[in-house]
Nucleic acid binder design. Structure first.
Lengths: 107, 107
DNA sequence: TTTATATATTGCAATATTACGATTATAAAT
DNA sequence: ATTTATAATCGTAATATTGCAATATATAAA
């Protein structure tokens, strides 16, 4: 019925799915790549770069912020976004653990 | 409008998002983990283990198959699923490249 | 051939996501 | 104080996803 039955899964599974969900949109991948290669990562520059409307970018940024993948620093009337390297490293480690512990052993 | 504007992103970005999307559900994470630790990974066992209806599991398996993450081998009236280790390794490498090349350099 | 078992497909209701126009909030500039 | 610029929020339409009952398909067993 459109609702994920989170109760039947453990918190690790739900958390992992939540991380993947945030990354599961090309705009958010593009935003992360763009932020990563710019010196100044101003929201408005992202809007110009990506080619989606400002409210749409703002919404994507909010989702990236929701798992602390990026953080925004207010600089006057602009907001400078950057990647949160701590979260970034933690997530990379989590995903690698998942990939390393999941093996094939049948068929 | 509910439609992702794939045209404005490059194929690498779209492909990466597509991989993340398949993994962005706790049931699919749970299925992969269960398949990985069982000797025999029969579809019906997965249904019993996960606690979702058979058509729902079948649909999740279809999505995992769509990016070749798992493959099903027909054994009589049963189907034995296993992880496709080639795809698994390729995806892990792709994701690590993404995480390694995305750095923080502002704020 | 009939019956039982295992899985896939279809159709649909409930909910979530994507995108954007309109509006609001905030701060700098005039 | 007013205007301008930047970004967040609200409201909403279009579309996608999740989940399951009902049904279809396929193979094994009786």
């Amino acid at each position: 019925m459109g609702v994920t039955k989170s109760q039947i899964f453990n918190s690790s599974q739900n958390q992992m799915a939540a991380i993947f969900k945030v990354l599961a949109h090309p705009a958010r991948i593009a935003i992360l790549q763009y932020i990563s290669k710019q010196e100044a990562c101003i929201c408005n520059d992202i809007v110009d770069e990506i080619g989606l409307a400002q409210p749409t970018i703002s919404q994507h940024l909010k989702e990236l912020k929701s798992i602390d993948l990026i953080q925004g620093e207010i600089e006057g009337k602009k907001v400078c976004y950057c990647i949160n390297l701590d979260t970034w490293a933690t997530i990379q480690k989590t995903l690698n653990t998942f990939f390393n512990t999941t093996k094939s052993n049948c068929c």
